[in-house]
Design a binder for these strands. Structure first.
Lengths: 122, 122
DNA sequence: CTGAATCCCTGCCGATACTG
DNA sequence: CAGTATCGGCAGGGATTCAG
């Protein structure tokens, strides 16, 4: 009668104490992921970087309606979450390159899952 | 050199026009899913309902710190998204049962993906 | 070129009180 | 029991300006 899924090694519920929270907790894995993706534009920035390393200006060009403030915020947030690295290159004019970390690339399947559900006919 | 994933039938990028947006678009599948899950407490409500049908009071008991206002908001939002159904039962006192739709149950894999990424060592 | 700082405005969420 | 109405605080995000 229950519809417990059978083979999910990492496992959503049950034995993990973080699954039994009765309020939003910052250390809940689901919250961690949603926090990394939180905020407008965030998934689009990640998607852009999934296509490869980008410079600040390239990101601005790809997302013309994204303000400098929010772009900076998003990149800082993603760096803080361990999703992107920021690399300054010497010389003039100063250039910076942003790239996904291995952990950032693992967001691919997450975005895929989000895409798949939203793309399925409602 | 590219790291295009090889076998994703629904497909994130490329041939789907909704993947080429340069700004957050409400009809983007990723946005649709994030909109369904948007807001504090939402995932916890879904998680509760993944365990089976629940009454309003049962949800309140499971999530004691969730206010009536927000619980109502979340249930309405999830109903609007086609994720839950709301069923009044006749008699006194009035009772209402909330249950996931088939589409709502398909959020299981989405939450699993979110969990897995957040649970992986950073 | 690559940001950080500021200002303002809006929308979310929590608490409380009230109704069918 | 199952909500809605109202209000206030606070954080998020957009536009603009300034800086390294």
């Amino acid at each position: 009668m229950t519809h417990r899924t059978v083979g999910h090694p990492p496992g959503l519920p049950d034995h993990d104490p973080r699954a039994r929270v009765d309020a939003p907790a910052p250390d809940c894995p689901v919250e961690i992921t949603l926090a990394a993706l939180r905020g407008r534009w965030t998934t689009l920035v990640v998607r852009e970087l999934l296509g490869g390393e980008r410079g600040y200006g390239e990101l601005r060009e790809a997302l013309p309606r994204l303000s400098d403030k929010v772009l900076s915020e998003r990149l800082a947030q993603l760096a803080e979450a361990g999703v992107v690295t920021r690399t300054r290159h010497p010389g003039w004019p100063p250039t910076v390159r942003y790239a996904l970390t291995p952990r950032g690339r693992e967001l691919g399947p997450v975005l895929q899952a989000l895409w798949d559900w939203g793309a399925a006919a409602g």
